[in-house]
Write a protein that binds this DNA or RNA. Structure first.
Lengths: 208, 208
DNA sequence: ACCTGAACACCGTTCAAGT
DNA sequence: ACCTGAACACCGTTCAAGT
């Protein structure tokens, strides 16, 4: 975790880790079988300091929104460490703690097993996907020497200068597409998703 | 692209590519500056054979749903090639073609610039995130020697056998959480997201 | 129980040199 | 304009051997 936070995801190599521990890289393989296994452990560890209680709300929609937003910010707080979690079906204790908590919100809302599982997954996928996309300019930054802002600005200029005849919408929305407000952007989609889940719940209640 | 489809994402190395082209790996660097740049090109290329027209619907919601679903299936059709696109802010011609098309749906629906951009991004993030998560068992499969199904089943058993006292919801939903119906799962979240976007549109119309 | 040395089979990238 | 040889500075992983 120290390496991840100090030097980023790409610096997480067996050799660096061994150095950090004052040991040779071959020794690590007594403790885990593959680097993949190590990353599974680290991915779970990334949620160790994520507060899973302490933000309950009377309204389950509010609670879901708050929890998702907090996880989003948590995953973005440690450099690009979020890349570790993204798309990993972890089953470590910290991940399970969060799963349990999240599913609880949906059950409390009155969703049946199937809907709770699917809705929870949808929200989870949205959060992780958003984290990846927010981190993406950061890794393209790593490749070239630009700041995150410069990468986004360059993209904006590229979009704005496209031929209007073939890409009228892209050109028209160049500004909106590259707006820097990541949190607002995240909440926009999150709120849509939650609203849709609510509506689906109401629909299935009517039927049942 | 041949390498990606035949041998998967991990086999995409400069050396393999050079072999495929009957050339030495150093030669590649005359054609692109870094592997990152090559991947940008390939990510766009992955949408070259994605049909962006030919599925228009009278209802914009239907059209959005159909387009998102098609893209989802397209990205999953070629082994784990979807990992290339995931979280890349590409600006190649094929990506732009799809962006233009997608944004058009939202504009046609009557969303303003800001909402169209944000909604489009939300859907895009959801699709990509889902692709990554669907591909994840496949890459953990690559690590061990298991089939995708076995990985999922192992996860199901792990979840089902957890202590019920601490993880009541996870245990209760173990089946639903590991259901194999990826398309149904995808459409569930997608439909929620679209429903939420519709509702938000109606809300902002009322205000305006 | 835990670590090391030494090696294996790879990576991406650079650069002077070739045609 | 395009390619090669040779090298550099890395990877993850294995395995016999050490304590």
């Amino acid at each position: 975790m120290r390496i991840l936070e100090r030097d980023g995801y790409n610096a997480l190599t067996t050799r660096n880790l061994a150095d950090e521990l004052g040991v040779k890289s071959a020794s690590l393989y007594w403790h885990f079988r593959t680097k993949e296994e190590l990353e599974d452990l680290l991915a779970d560890e990334e949620l160790a300091d994520f507060d899973v209680e302490g933000w309950s709300r009377d309204d389950w929609q509010e609670e879901l929104r708050e929890g998702a937003f907090r996880l989003f910010k948590h995953l973005l707080a440690k450099r690009d460490a979020g890349r570790l979690c993204a798309g990993r079906l972890a089953t470590g204790p910290n991940t399970l703690r969060w799963m349990e908590r999240g599913l609880g919100i949906f059950r409390r809302a009155g969703l049946n097993a199937h809907d709770a599982a699917f809705a929870s997954h949808a929200v989870h996928v949205y959060i992780q996907g958003f984290v990846i996309f927010t981190l993406a300019p950061l890794s393209s930054l790593q490749a070239k020497g630009l700041s995150r802002r410069e990468v986004v600005n360059a993209t904006k200029r590229t979009l704005a200068r496209l031929p209007v005849a073939t890409y009228p919408n892209v050109v028209a929305l160049a500004d909106a597409l590259t707006e820097r407000d990541a949190e607002g952007r995240f909440l926009f989609g999150l709120d849509c998703l939650i609203a849709g889940i609510v509506q689906r719940k109401l629909g299935s209640l009517k039927k049942g």
